Simulated scan of single mutants.
Amino acid sequence: MPAASTTFRTLAVSAITLLTVTGCQALNDAGRAMGRADIVNDLAARMDRALESTYSAEYQLPGGKTATISQAQDPARSAYAWPGGKFTATEEATTRCGVKGERTTCVLDTPPAPNAKPSVAVFAAAEREGLVTPPMVMGLLTTAALDPSAVITQSDTTVAGLHATCVDIRQNADAFAACVTGEGTLGSFTGRIDGEPVELALSRYHEQVDGAAFDLPPGADVVDRRPATS
């Protein structure tokens, strides 16, 4: 799997290249014109930096539920926890925990490659569960930026006490809205994933992470599928 930073840069460069040929369309923010490629490049750079940051972000979900994305460095670790389960990627293992009834089961598999970012593995696994991730939002934004029929409105706001840039996308019958903070974390998202309505909003942000964020849930049944070492 390619590094996420390379993916983000490729998306941004692709947008700039195509828009140079087709002509730049404006994003309006209180009379300020900003090209589609500019906003894609800016948000891509923010998210790219965030992949190498240490932070914990708690998100509010519908129904009063919460989800948490945590990242730490030295050693690099990442986790995505939500009401139905948890994914973690550390030097020791990639782990998927799920809840069935009153039991929690965690399956341990091979850890990410030494040079891979743990967040890449965690976000990819989370997307397979239909969860919203920063790379997913970046992909949706890039697709919209390359569509000349899309209507994109940019604005600034504050999310969980952090400055954020927001975009509202109207693309044929589809629409979504997303905010990205200056730190590069996903600030909010409202839209549809696989036809289902999805909504989340950043409620808390910390530049430190409790090591327990990467631990297995207490009392979980553990299935270890990692190859035996001699």
Rank of each mutant, 00 (worst) to 15 (best):
P2T: 05
A4R: 05
S5Q: 13
T6M: 11
T10P: 15
L11P: 04
S14N: 15
L18I: 15
L19G: 10
T20Q: 11
V21I: 13
T22V: 14
Q25K: 12
A26H: 07
A30S: 12
G31E: 00
A33D: 13
M34V: 14
G35K: 09
R36F: 01
R36I: 03
A37P: 09
A37W: 08
A37L: 12
R49H: 04
E52I: 15
S53Q: 08
T54N: 03
S56K: 14
A57H: 03
E58K: 15
E58R: 14
A72Y: 04
Q73Y: 11
A76K: 07
R77T: 03
S78Y: 01
A79F: 00
Y80M: 01
A81G: 05
K86N: 03
F87I: 10
T88M: 00
T88N: 00
A89M: 01
T95A: 12
V99I: 13
T105F: 07
V107W: 06
L108Y: 02
L108V: 01
D109K: 11
D109M: 04
T110R: 13
A113S: 14
P114E: 12
P114F: 11
P114H: 13
V122S: 10
V122K: 05
V122I: 06
R128L: 00
L131P: 01
T133H: 00
T133C: 00
M138C: 03
L140V: 03
A144T: 03
V151G: 12
I152D: 00
T153N: 13
T153R: 08
Q154C: 09
T157E: 14
V159Q: 04
V159E: 04
G161H: 02
G161M: 02
A164C: 06
A164M: 04
A164N: 03
C166G: 09
V167R: 00
D168A: 11
R170N: 11
F176W: 02
V180E: 02
G182I: 00
G182V: 07
E183I: 05
T185C: 07
L186K: 01
G191C: 06
I193S: 13
D194F: 02
P197W: 02
P197N: 02
V198I: 12
E199S: 15
L200F: 05
A201Q: 10
L202G: 05
S203Q: 11
S203L: 09
G211M: 08
G219Y: 03
D221L: 13
V223S: 12
V223P: 06
P227E: 02
P227I: 01
P227D: 01
T229H: 08
S230D: 15
